[in-house]
Amino acid sequence: MTETFDDLRDLYQEVILDHGRRPRHGRRLETYDATAKGDNPMCGDRVQVWLRYAPDGTIAETGFEARGCAISVASADLMAETVQGRSKSDTAALFATFREMARTGVCPACDPTMERLAPLSGVHEYPSRVKCATLPWHALVAALAGTPGDIKETSSE
């Protein structure tokens, strides 16, 4: 009976449903170098992101706990996967590109590293849902700017 929602495949692609249901990185890190919380006051969604850095300063591991919709959980999980091994400045640039893609649905600056995030471009057709996809990124960027014990609150779009 799910053919009713066939036209929603642009938004709820299989990869989003899968990562929304079974996130691979959805856990608090035992040892971490930075953490930050993000919340969407308008809808009540919340996420906390933990980061562990490698000796060279790149992101070694990302974990998160999210209370939110399938889009925000999947976005957090795909984000955690994508930023692994990246430098802080690379990650910030990636967020800028991702945000643009989420808002417009197109991604002129996209290189193959964006491939995993591309399924989330469907949110651009649902303006009220763009913030669901970008919330975990806001928390990640806040964590990158912080230090252990320094939990930053950040709002989304």
């Binding site: 929602f5 929603l8 919709c69 399938a70 649902y126 849902r129």
Partner: peptide
């Protein structure tokens, strides 16, 4: 399903 996903569907 989360309330927002319900509303979108």
């Amino acid at each position: 399903a989360h309330a927002h996903d319900v509303a979108t569907l």
